[in-house]
Design a protein around this nucleic acid. Structure first.
Lengths: 225, 225
DNA sequence: ACGCGAATGTAAGCGGCGCTTAAATATCGT
DNA sequence: ACGATATTTAAGCGCCGCTTACATTCGCGT
């Protein structure tokens, strides 16, 4: 790893990359103990510095959590972009299904980290260009896909913004049901969660299409790319 | 109020209804400061007892938060039942729309309390009969409505459980987008949030119907009951 | 080469927290 | 009336977020 030595073995007075080390330590802590279990002091301990050191880089605990959320948002956006990049088709429904696949995949792989990104009262979303910017970018990307589907007459009638919000709410609801452990009640074990979420989403997307069967076929084809 | 006197004015050594007073104080704290801002000591202060007193009734902070979640679940279930009770029709879509109206209404009126009910890692959901029981009851109620719609041939084709989960995920996603302050990004101010959520939900439900126009009409009629 | 301000870290400490324990006080069944 | 039981207090432990005062190092201009 690129991470420096621990407290006892560190040679230099200055850490060198404390900011990054603290974020990494906190990300690990988040997945170990959940967001509420995160402690600035423990992150400092793991980075091998004194308990006061982090406050040079993060004046408050919330600033540290916001940086962790930024890290998550970056990786989530990367996953979504990668999902779209590795796509042979430009069929709108195939693209939407691919976004969903990447989105759910990241949420399932990093459930607690995903919660931090979504839990707005706990982070400074509006104060972070990364968070609000990337969120806006994903929204714009999906909006463009829906607009294209409408232009190509592939989409059912209805207000475009309403449909967009509906799709987004369904995706958010599915992801949150998983990370909030609501899927247990639905007799869906964790290992089947992602497949179930994707199936629900694709069924919904097919219902949006003028030609559901064609949309299903396009989504199915894109799944193997 | 039924709440007893504060610390300085209390006459008796025993509080009398400390458990209830602590829950009430914590509910107030939750809406004031959010779940993370809740402190057992502060709840004790507001109930007028020493900081050690609560631990006779709630051995841990999580037990107190679970009791608060139970309180919320009870009221949420009451709201849903009331919404269904004041309904002249037994049309499945009208009933589903009424459930959504009551559900969203409670979530909008008690956003932070709603978060506590949903945030599973923070409460002992499985250990609470009230929480898991009421959740199962609502699920059963909705399942029965969907089954009836299918039996009456009012519902489109498709797996019933998948449709049920889809509807539930959409509702949860909408409610959580609101309480997690995601709707700001969608240019939806708080005062219009509930109407927007309901519109998105009813548009979805209409799409589930064999005859969307009839379903819309039934939902519209039920809204004035 | 070096000297000095800016940046980065340490050490110590404040008040508040969750939780535990021992003792004091009230209630209740018999 | 009284002893068993339940409730509350008081004191304290270790940890927390955050602040302040001070030590060390870096980097830049001359």
């Amino acid at each position: 790893m690129t991470s420096p030595e621990t407290a006892s073995t560190r040679a230099t007075y200055h850490h060198g990359a404390l900011r990054e080390a603290l974020i990494a330590a906190t990300v690990a802590l988040v997945e170990e103990r959940g967001a509420e279990g995160v402690t600035v002091r423990e992150a400092a301990r793991r980075a091998g510095v004194s308990s006061g050191a982090p406050f040079r880089h993060f004046p408050t605990r919330m600033a540290l959590m916001t940086a962790v959320a930024e890290e998550g948002m970056r990786k989530l956006a990367e996953a979504v972009d990668a999902g779209l990049a590795g796509l042979a088709t430009d069929d709108p429904f195939a693209r939407l299904a691919a976004i969903g696949r990447a989105y759910f995949g990241w949420a399932v792989a990093n459930p607690t980290h995903y919660r931090v990104v979504g839990d707005r009262p706990g982070i400074d979303f509006e104060g972070s260009e990364i968070l609000s910017g990337r969120a806006a970018a994903i929204r714009a990307e999906m909006g463009a896909i829906f607009a294209e589907a409408r232009a190509s007459d592939l989409l059912r009638d209805g207000d475009l913004d309403l449909i967009h919000l509906q799709a987004r709410a369904l995706a958010y609801g599915l992801a949150r049901m998983h990370v909030d452990a609501h899927l247990k009640e639905w007799a869906i074990p964790p290992e089947r969660a992602q497949a179930a979420m994707q199936a629900v989403m694709e069924d919904y997307l097919a219902g949006l299409a003028r030609d559901p069967a064609a949309a299903r076929a396009a989504m199915r084809r894109s799944a193997q790319a």
